[in-house]
Every structure is written in C-alpha cells, then in structure tokens.
Design a protein around this nucleic acid. Structure first.
Length: 637
RNA sequence: GCCGGCGUAGCUCAGUUGGCAGAGCGGCGGUUUCGUAAACCGCAGGUCGGAGGUUCGAUCCCUCUCGCCGGCUCCA
C-alpha cells in the first residue's frame, strides 16, 4: 500500500502498481497530470508516496507543460505524415509554448506552417489516446534504428536507464520522458508561430536543424490573450519605436553593425538617466572617474583578458610599435587608479564609478537593436574594501540598485545567487564569506531569490537581479560580483593597522547594465511614452489659429524659464486635431492648447497624453502640475 | 558564423507570369484660420540594397555580395 497525502490535507492509500489515472478515476477527479511534491508527473505512471500530491485538471496552469509537450508530439506526428523521411530531434515545452526540431529532407518555409497546423488539427480531431510504452533498451534501440531516427539514437545512448519510455499516439511513437496528456483530443487551442534554424544540441559545430515554434493553452481565451500580448510586444519593439520617435538609429552599412547613434531626443533621455545616476552615486559615496578607451597589450595580459576573454576583444592596433587593445571592460583602469598610491585601511571602502564605454565582439547574428550591441556604456563601479566591510557594502549596493530601478518604474524583481563553480580561483574561505554576504543582503532586502549552485564566474560569486517589465518580461539588469582574481593579478594591497600589506576585496557591479540596453528596455517598458522626467519633450504648446502664435511662444518661454523641455508649434496652418494627433504620436506627456479664450485670460487648456482633457486653467497652475510630476520623478502624469 | 524569410520614395506598403515605376503619410508651394487623434489643391522625390550574368530588353530569372528579421538546448 502506498500512502498519498493530497494537497487538501486528506490522505488516501493506493495499491502498489496502481496508476495515478486509476486513483484519479476512483476519486472522481478528471485529472490529466499529477504534481507530486512539486514535480510534474505523468498520469499513467504508477502511484508513489508523496507529502503534497495534486491531481491536475486540464485548466490548471501547472498542467500546461504536459499540454504543450503533447502539442509538440502532435506537431511531430503531423510533420511525419507530411514529410516522409524527416528525422526528429527534440521537442520540449518551453515557457511560451513548445517547439520541435526536425531534420527535413527538403527545405521548409513559413508558408508550410498553415499546412502543418491543418494536419495537427486532424490529429486532434482523431483524438488518439496517448500511451506510455516502456521498452527494454535493446528493443528501444532497434525501434529507433528501424525508423532511421539517428538523433533519437544519440539521445538514447545518453540515457542510463534500462527501461526506456516511449509515447505512442496513433501511428506515431516517440522516445520521450513525458509527461503527456491522456489524449490528443485535449489539445484544442494551439497555434504554430515561427520557424527558425537551430543547431543540433545548440552546438555550432553540428548540423543545423529546422525548429518549428508553437504555443498551446487549455482555454481559447488564454491563447488569444497570448497572441495579443505578442502583438503588443511587436508594437512596443524599440527597434520600431526608436526611429519612429527619432531616438536613435543604427547604420549598419555606413557605420557598422551594433554601433548606436543617439539622436538628440534619445541623447536627452540618456542625459537625464546619467544626471540622475551621477547625482545618486555621489550621494551614495561613489567617486566618479573617467578612463581611456584603449590600453596597452601588457595591461590586458596582466588582467588575464588576453588569455580568457580574447574572443570578445577586437584585434590590436599598432601605435608606434606597441600593441594597443580597445577595452572590453573597465576594471583594469579602475585598478590602475587604485594603485597610483599606497592605500591605508582607513581609506577603504573606495568606490569608483564610471559610465565606461566598452567594445566587445559579438557575432553578427546575435546583434539585436539596442539590446545586444558591440559598443556600449556600462554603468560600472568597483568597490574596494576590507573584509570586515564586505557585508555592509553588499547591502548598500543592493539597496541602492533597487531604489534606482524603482525610480525608473520597475517594481517587480527576482534575484539569483550564483555560487562557487568547480573551477575557481581564490580561497574557499573568501568565497564563503562573500557568498554569505550576498545571501544576507538578499534576505535583508526581502528580495525573493533562487540559488544557482556552481553558476558563479571562476573569479567570484554574484547576485543578478532581474526586473519584470510592463509586459511581464524578465530582463537581467543589476549584477553584483565579487572578484578574487584581479586583486591578485594586479597585486592590489592596503596597509592594515598592523603596518602590513593586505589584500582588499573587490566588488564589481553594474546597476542598469549598459545604457544602450537599459534604454531599449525602457522604451519597450513604456512603449515610448516616457514618464515626464525622462521625456525628451515634456510639453508642447499648440495654438488653435495663427492668431495665437505669439501667445504660444510666450507660454513656451514661461515653461522654459521653469526648467521644462518644451516645444511651441508655431509653423501655423495646422488644425488643432492635426497637432494633437502629432503630439500624441510623439508621446509628448503634456499638451498646452492656446485658443483665443486662453490668450485673453492668460490661461492654457491642458490635455494629457493619456487623452484626458483637464480644461482651461491659469498657466501657472499648469506649470506647477508639470514641474511637480517632473521633480518627483513620478511615472504618472 | 549558420538555417529560414526579406530588401521597391524619408516612413508604411502596392506592383510587374521580363516591356516607360505606384499609393498614402511625410517634405516643399499655395489656399484655408480651424476647440481636443489627420482641412483642401498642386509640386518635387527612385541606380526597385550592391556587383556580375542570361536576354532585343532585368526591379522581376540566375550567381555572388551587403544588410535586415526570426532563431541557434528552458536537455529525450
């Protein structure tokens, strides 16, 4: 007998060898999968004891993974029917749906997706039961060999088990771990989305397969919502909004891929970001520094970059017989400043901050608007401190980071703590102290985090903070990393109370990541409609007829005197509706409308970007409102 | 880099089964002076991404090249 404790606290007992399906039937639950102590399990599997067992029905979000996995199999089955000779690779469920990788005998394009989807609908209508089949290893191998599934054979060779699980639906059978839904008829709401190349096992030295992406949901509304979400993401794409709002451009042919041109409006946003960033850094005890873009080969030799980071660096240039490299990182320069004199324990902590522009080689195919570029400015800083200061410093940085991100309108965070990998430098005691400091800082801030064991860099443990944007997409921004490598390599020291040299701790951190990437994320988060303090143009003055042009100019001057970024649209000949539409498309937060009545009374009619009409009011009142929103750096108008 | 798709006016896009290159928006000139998301008329604007080839003739077909978009393990 097996004792099973259900989520509602009740316990049930089941026969040894009984399946979850039989148990669910006995309890009258229309379950399609099971969650046993947090692990998704196939409903056909034999029962096992568990402390927290949930029988999942189709509409349970936690069953979605099984639903999508089954959808992937239906895709593979359809492709098999339509393209004899195709070989199957892998087809998992992913966070946004599922995919399946194929080796097609012929080339397949997007236009073929409709045909494949149609075949999938037939398979759903045919409603095959999905059976789990356990085969002895030899038989499994024989089956795959018969089918010519060379990729599956490779996967099989890596499975240690002697009994191999397959899933069968109709004429289709696939090597698969599961779990799956009980039948294909349950996959009602799905759509194929995309087609792309993907290396077998993600390895660029191996063959290129064709990957078909799709998604599936239990409810039609959820699928529709997902498709709407995708459309919205497309609409907010910073690569579309950037040129549209005249924020930036990238001239691949004229200048080079991955190199960003900041137009006046984008540069204004950047300036406001930098201004705020510097103000806060000074307040937090950082010292601002500037360092060059080039450094001699021996610098990069000593830092180890030439040994470990060469593929990310550009070829050296020759200057009077000396090799120079353009910098991929700022650290060696910061360290060089530290080393210009003897440092006392009393001098620490030292916090050097720089908006440092670096250049890194990225393969052409991975470049992506502002999010992945070859030249970018890191909001970099290095904290050099004594062992007894580590904890306070880390807490300070984390708190500082969250404060800054909140000001930019991000409120949802998730952190990751990455610990010591197998290959590492430095002393284990240092690693432990550093890791503990990171952990305690996360707890002090009440930040939810997960631990990624062994995921730290070879030179130190780290915290990464992801934000989630207005479309619920996660972006990694802040990173706080210990470095036990460079202080050693550069022999950084401070003189302790004992008069002896000691090795300081060095913490490397970036809060926003890079200004380019952060700007791209901001554009998408706000859909180009920046909060007033960041908006390149904060207000626009619109004269209703040409007679109000002089008044509009006066109004604009008043706003300028109040320190606001304002445009007066005085070219004339445009209807109010036209001007409003224009201002709306440019996402200018405030529109000050001047007609004859307003000019007469020294008023303006205030319209917000949100479409809200606040009506006529004294000019001073409008200015007060706008200044208030700007100075408080609030996200609302 | 690799696989698939795509490059036509400043922008969004039509189009030609190989025969003088099209619209809307934007720009410019004029008319209109207008109350909360597009007034009206006219004009200019193109090496049809680039190079080579096939052809009487290429934006269209072929080859190469440059660039863009989607993607390149969330392990069966």
């Amino acid at each position: 007998m097996v004792e099973i404790r259900l989520a509602d606290g009740k316990s049930v007992s089941a026969q040894e060898g009984e399946s979850w399906q039989e148990l669910a039937n006995r309890l009258g639950v229309p379950a399609v999968a099971v969650l046993v102590d947090g692990e998704l399990v196939d409903i056909r599997n034999p029962v096992r004891s568990g402390k927290d067992v949930r029988l999942l029905t189709l509409d349970d979000d936690r069953a979605t993974e099984a639903l999508r996995h089954t959808a992937a199999h239906i895709l593979a089955q359809a492709v098999r029917r339509l393209y004899p000779g195709v070989k199957l690779a892998i087809g998992p469920a992913i966070s946004t749906g599922f995919y399946y990788d194929f080796d097609f005998p012929q080339s397949v394009s997007r236009e073929d997706l409709a045909k494949i989807e149609e075949e999938m609908r037939k398979i759903v209508a045919e409603d095959y039961p999905v059976e789990r089949v356990l085969l002895p290893r030899a038989e499994a191998e024989e089956l795959l060999r018969q089918e010519g599934e060379t990729y599956k054979l490779e996967l099989l060779s890596e499975i240690p088990d002697q009994e191999i699980s397959f899933y069968r639906q109709g004429e289709f059978i696939d090597l698969c771990r599961g779990p799956h839904l009980p039948s294909t008829g349950l996959v009602k709401h799905f759509k194929l989305l995309d087609l792309a190349g993907a290396y077998w096992r993600g390895d660029a030295t191996r063959v290129m397969l064709t990957r078909i992406y799709g998604t599936a949901f239990a409810r039609a509304e959820a699928l529709e919502e997902f498709l709407r979400w995708r459309e919205e993401a497309k609409r907010r794409d910073h690569r579309r909004l950037g040129p549209q709002l005249d924020l930036f451009s990238i001239d691949n042919e004229g200048i080079g891929a991955g190199l960003v041109l900041w137009h006046p409006k984008g540069a204004r946003v950047r300036h406001e970001i930098e201004r705020f960033w510097k103000e806060r850094h000074f307040a937090a005890g950082y010292q601002l520094i500037y360092t060059p873009h080039l450094g001699r080969a021996n610098l990069w030799q000593r830092s180890g970059h030439l040994d470990f980071y060469r593929e990310g660096m550009y070829s050296p240039m020759d200057i009077e017989g000396q090799e120079f490299y353009i910098k991929p990182m700022n650290c060696p320069f910061h360290i060089s400043i530290y080393k210009t004199k003897t440092r006392s324990y009393r001098d620490l902590p030292i916090r050097y901050a720089e908006l440092g522009t670096v250049y890194r080689y990225e393969r052409s195919g991975v470049l992506h608007g502002l999010l992945r570029v070859r030249g970018f400015t890191q909001d970099d800083a290095h904290i050099i401190c004594r062992p007894d200061q580590v904890e306070e410093e880390i807490r300070g940085v984390l708190k500082f980071a969250l404060e800054m991100l909140r000001t930019f309108g991000f409120t949802e965070f998730a952190a990751h703590l990455s610990t010591r990998p197998v290959k590492y430098v430095g002393q284990p005691e240092d690693w432990d102290r550093a890791t503990e400091a990171l952990r305690r800082a996360l707890e002090a801030e009440g930040l939810p985090y997960d631990v990624k064991p062994g995921e730290g860099a070879f030179y130190g443990p780290k915290i990464d903070v992801d934000i989630s944007d207005s479309l619920n997409r996660a972006w990694q921004l802040t990173t706080i990393q210990f470095d036990f490598n460079l202080p050693e390599r550069f022999d950084m020291t401070y003189v302790g109370p004992d008069g002896q040299p000691h090795r300081p701790y060095m913490i490397h951190r970036a809060l926003l990541g890079s200004l380019e990437r952060f700007f791209g994320i901001l554009i998408e988060h706000y859909g180009g409609a920046f909060p007033p303090w960041l908006a390149p143009v904060q207000a626009v003055v619109l004269p209703i007829t040409d007679a109000q042009i002089p008044y509009a100019q006066q109004v604009a001057e008043k706003l300028e005197e109040a320190g606001l970024r304002v445009e007066a649209w005085t070219r004339g000949g445009r209807s109010l509706g036209h001007q409003i539409r224009e201002a709306q498309l440019q996402k200018i937060p405030y529109m000050l409308i001047c007609g004859a009545r307003e000019a007469e009374a020294g008023q303006v009619s205030l319209r917000l970007r949100t479409g809200q009409d606040l009506g006529p009011q004294p000019l001073e009142e409008a200015i007060r409102r706008i200044r208030g929103a700007v100075e408080s750096r609030q996200t609302e108008l």
